[in-house]
């Protein structure tokens, strides 16, 4: 009965896996930190206001970037691809 050939990860595959982890974790943390907006990214944020005399409701804009789900999806896609590629660069143990 022969031993099955052991397969071990190459340094490059390890780098790809770390990259995949970063690509998934970093945008998620940033997304949560900027408010967890479930929608497309915003370049400015609406601040609702009310005029005290006329009672007219209006908005002022604050120039602030809010990460949207399209960037999350892109980052997750790249992360999964990177993780998948890491299996291509495995080495057979001698």
């Amino acid at each position: 009965m022969s031993d099955p050939q052991r397969i071990r990860s190459s340094p490059f595959s390890l780098i790809l896996r770390i990259l995949a982890l970063v690509l998934i974790l970093a945008p998620t943390v940033f997304w949560i930190f900027t408010g967890g907006h479930v929608g497309f990214s915003k370049d400015r944020v609406e601040i609702p206001q009310v005029d005290p005399i006329t009672q007219i409701e209006y908005v002022d804009y604050e120039e602030r970037f809010v990460l949207g789900v399209e960037y999350l999806a892109l980052a997750y896609g790249l992360g999964v691809t990177s993780f998948g590629l890491s299996f291509v660069f495995r080495q057979k143990a001698k």
Binding site: Q49, D51, T54, I56, Y58, V59, D60
Partner: peptide, 8 residues
């Protein structure tokens, strides 16, 4: 001039 009038 106050920037209150608006159409959304």
């Amino acid at each position: 001039p106050k920037g209150v009038n608006n159409v959304s």
